[in-house]
Computed example of a mutant assay.
Amino acid sequence: MALALAAALVGCDSGTKELASAELVTAGLTPAEQEQGAHMRITDIEVTGPAAAQHPGTPNRIGSDRIRVRAYEPVLEPGGKPWATLVWAHGGSFLRGTLDWPEADWVSRQFADAGIQVYSVDYILASDTVQAPAPSNDVAAVLSWAAERAEPEALLAIGGASAGAHLATLAALDRADRAAAGDGRVADALILEYPTMHRVQLPDPAIAAATAGLPEQRRFSDDRIAEMYAFYLGAGPEGGAGLQAGDAPVAGELPAERLAALPPTTIVNADADDLRASGEQFAEQLRAAGVPVTASIQPGTVHGYLNRPEETATSLVDAEETIDRFVIALRQIAAG
Rank of each mutant, 00 (worst) to 15 (best):
11 G>V: 14
194 Y>H: 14
118 V>R: 01
186 V>Q: 14
64 S>Y: 10
129 T>C: 02
293 V>Y: 03
185 R>M: 09
172 A>Q: 07
131 Q>T: 15
89 A>E: 07
196 T>M: 14
122 D>R: 11
228 M>Q: 11
310 E>T: 14
148 E>G: 09
8 A>I: 14
72 Y>L: 10
124 I>V: 15
60 N>M: 09
290 G>A: 03
216 E>P: 00
187 A>T: 06
41 R>A: 13
177 D>G: 11
170 L>F: 06
281 Q>N: 11
166 H>L: 13
27 A>Q: 07
324 D>A: 15
82 P>F: 12
276 R>D: 04
143 L>K: 02
323 I>A: 13
196 T>N: 08
37 G>Q: 01
60 N>V: 14
145 W>G: 02
177 D>N: 12
114 A>P: 09
166 H>I: 15
83 W>Q: 04
112 A>E: 03
279 G>I: 13
140 A>F: 10
248 A>D: 00
34 Q>H: 04
117 Q>M: 13
117 Q>I: 00
320 E>S: 14
23 E>H: 13
267 I>T: 05
272 A>H: 08
301 T>M: 12
240 G>A: 14
192 L>M: 15
164 G>R: 07
65 D>T: 13
293 V>A: 02
226 A>V: 11
217 Q>F: 15
205 P>L: 06
167 L>H: 13
52 A>H: 10
16 T>H: 08
298 Q>F: 08
261 A>C: 05
117 Q>F: 15
146 A>M: 04
225 I>K: 01
155 L>Y: 04
176 A>K: 06
289 A>Y: 08
59 P>R: 07
298 Q>V: 12
146 A>N: 00
35 E>F: 07
234 G>N: 10
138 D>R: 06
272 A>T: 05
240 G>W: 12
116 I>V: 15
122 D>K: 03
218 R>Y: 15
179 A>K: 03
185 R>D: 12
310 E>M: 12
44 D>G: 06
19 L>D: 00
277 A>I: 06
293 V>S: 03
283 A>D: 06
97 G>T: 01
245 A>K: 09
196 T>W: 07
264 P>F: 04
230 A>H: 09
298 Q>T: 15
104 A>T: 02
320 E>T: 15
240 G>R: 04
52 A>K: 10
191 I>L: 15
41 R>H: 08
74 P>M: 12
108 S>Y: 05
17 K>G: 05
283 A>G: 09
175 R>F: 00
235 A>K: 09
71 A>G: 00
163 A>D: 01
153 E>H: 13
238 E>Y: 11
7 A>Q: 09
203 P>D: 10
227 E>R: 14
87 V>T: 11
130 V>P: 00
9 L>D: 04
72 Y>C: 04
